[in-house]
Simulated assay, not measured.
Amino acid sequence: MTILHTPRLRLEPITDQHLDGIHAMNQLPEVMRYIGGQPETFEQTAAWIADAQRCWAAWGTSWWAFIEPTSGRAAGAGCVKYARREDELPADLDSLRCNPLEIGWRLHPDFWRQGLASEAALCMADFAFDNLAAPELIAVRHPDNLASARVMDRLGMRYRGLETWYGEMNATHVVSRGDWLRL
C-alpha cells in the first residue's frame, strides 16, 4: 500500500487507525450532503473502511486518509478506485476491473477553501497515471456539488454528462492519460 505526500498532507491508505478521524468527518451533514445525503453512523464508517481495505488488497489502490502532518488530524479522504454502476460493492472485486478508475475526495469543513482537495487530487491523479497506467480517470459528483466541479476543472477534467454510477445519476467528468500528460 502506497503512502503519498503533498506539500501540506500525508495520504495514508485508510485503516482502522483512521476510524475516529474519518467518522468525525463522515458524521457531519455538510460533508455527506452530496454523498448519500445522510450522516454516517460509526458502524457505517467502520464498514466503509473495511470495504476500502478489501479494495486495497485486491487492486493495490483505494481510499487514503488525508493527514495534516503537524497535528496528525484527518483532514479528509480521497480515492483512486474502480468505479461501479451499482450502489453496493460486489463480493467479486475483480469484476469491477472492466470499469474506469475513479478519483474522488471529501474534506472535513475545517479544511475547506484551502486548496487541499485540489492538492490531494493532483497527487492521486499522478499516482493513477504513473503507477497504475490508467488510460483515463473519471470523477463523479452530485449535479449540485459545484465545489467538486471546480476541483475537477482544476484537474483538467471535462464534463461528460449525467451517467449512472453508484445506483444514481451523477455528473461525470473525465481526463485521459494523454490530456493529463499535456497539462
Rank of each mutant, 00 (worst) to 15 (best):
136 E>K: 06
30 E>Q: 15
103 I>P: 03
172 T>L: 05
33 R>H: 08
166 Y>M: 14
118 S>V: 13
121 A>V: 00
22 I>V: 12
44 Q>G: 01
141 R>E: 04
120 A>R: 04
165 W>V: 14
42 F>Q: 11
46 A>Y: 03
52 A>I: 09
183 L>G: 12
112 W>D: 02
103 I>M: 11
123 C>T: 14
59 W>L: 05
134 A>Y: 01
182 R>H: 13
164 T>K: 11
123 C>N: 04
124 M>D: 05
29 P>V: 07
80 V>A: 05
21 G>E: 06
122 L>Q: 14
44 Q>N: 02
8 R>C: 01
55 C>V: 07
117 A>M: 01
24 A>E: 07
51 D>A: 12
63 W>A: 05
35 I>F: 06
108 H>S: 07
146 L>A: 14
67 I>L: 13
84 R>V: 12
139 A>K: 04
39 P>C: 00
144 D>S: 01
67 I>T: 11
60 G>V: 14
55 C>P: 03
35 I>V: 14
31 V>H: 05
17 Q>R: 15
122 L>S: 09
8 R>L: 01
77 A>H: 12
56 W>E: 08
151 V>H: 00
148 S>E: 10
55 C>G: 10
148 S>Q: 13
26 N>V: 00
127 F>Q: 13
7 P>W: 02
47 A>T: 03
33 R>K: 12
153 D>T: 06
69 P>G: 07
24 A>S: 13
17 Q>A: 15
44 Q>W: 01
121 A>S: 08
27 Q>K: 15
162 L>I: 13
111 F>V: 02
92 D>I: 11
178 G>E: 15
21 G>N: 12
174 V>Q: 08
110 D>W: 06
182 R>N: 14
22 I>Y: 07
128 A>T: 01
130 D>A: 14
133 A>D: 14
151 V>G: 10
152 M>R: 02
158 R>S: 15
149 A>M: 13
5 H>I: 08
37 G>M: 05
21 G>K: 03
9 L>R: 02
126 D>L: 03
166 Y>F: 15
71 S>N: 07
50 A>M: 09
39 P>D: 00
